[in-house]
Design a protein around this nucleic acid. Structure first.
Lengths: 155, 155
DNA sequence: CTACTTGCAAATATTTTGCATGCCA
DNA sequence: TGGCATGCAAAATATTTGCAAGTAG
């Protein structure tokens, strides 16, 4: 009883990577697209499974893995042992952003501050790293860690 | 049969945090201090256990946890599911640095490029985040990901 | 139809914890 | 000596995989 209601926007994504278009896959992309912060596999599974108890956790992991390989999804780790996932920027067409993380409760906020300055610096650093270490630089992440207002108050 | 040969440099570190000075603890700090890249718990355990089979993996994890809480060690995650650890900068008194990671083999290289420009940008971003989100920003990480020369050749 | 997907359960991998023993201060 | 630290084994998490059954194309 796979429900493909959410597939309209995503058919071309799966076609491009030669993967089949299924209900759970579209649901996952839809959730990631609507989310205001990166989601863990468990968060995605909980919601999907609540809507349709037939959905299994393994499918969530396999789908996230598939989409991460295809660079449709980006996998992030913030230090609490569970990976989070969000849509790649070329998919959302949103502004380039990074994350601010509370090191106590691991709440995550997206931000985009001084994008031009960042671009300039990143370009310089990436060039320098390629020259010095022979790496082909593909992407970067900048995480800021601190205490959110709630956790600071409790501390 | 605890061997405290490696404790000379580290007594004050443990005294400051009110923790006992033991062989395994000093060995771990010594390893981190000598390492040129962040080490995983398993890497540390392997070497220590080879030198002294009495050392257990739990001690490694408990020590890393203790030292991370005390901000003597920094915990890092690069996306392969195993955390890495390195000495905090105020302990090594080395230059502020970040990491370049091969997304295929997860080799990690430390770098420090354009430190002044980075400081300027980070200060601006941190201030902006504190004002906008009410977080108290404590630290940041910048990870560059790409392919190392070896993995690029193989691909 | 046929191969790709899925669900379930079992297997891995990493990290944490309980408890009896050991050892630092 | 007293309480923190350790080792071992068992537990808790997170993630991956084998396999039989389901379904997209």
């Amino acid at each position: 009883v796979t429900n493909k209601d959410n597939c309209h926007n995503w058919t071309h994504v799966f076609e491009r990577i030669g993967a089949r278009i299924t209900g759970p896959r579209c649901d996952i992309l839809e959730m990631l697209d609507k989310a205001e912060r990166p989601l863990s596999a468990h968060q995605i599974y909980s919601e999907l499974h609540a809507r349709n108890p037939k959905v299994g956790l393994a499918t969530v992991y396999r789908t996230l893995s598939l989409l991460t390989e295809a660079e449709i999804v980006e996998r992030l780790e913030f230090g609490d042992g569970r990976a989070r996932y969000e849509l790649a920027e070329h998919v959302t067409q949103e502004e380039h952003h990074h994350h601010l993380v509370c090191e106590r409760c691991f709440r995550v906020v997206k931000y985009s501050e001084f994008p031009q300055e960042e671009r300039d610096l990143v370009r310089k650093v990436a060039g320098s790293l390629e020259a010095k270490f022979g790496f082909t630089v593909e992407r970067h992440q900048m995480h800021f860690y601190g205490l959110c207002p709630e956790c600071r108050q409790r501390a």
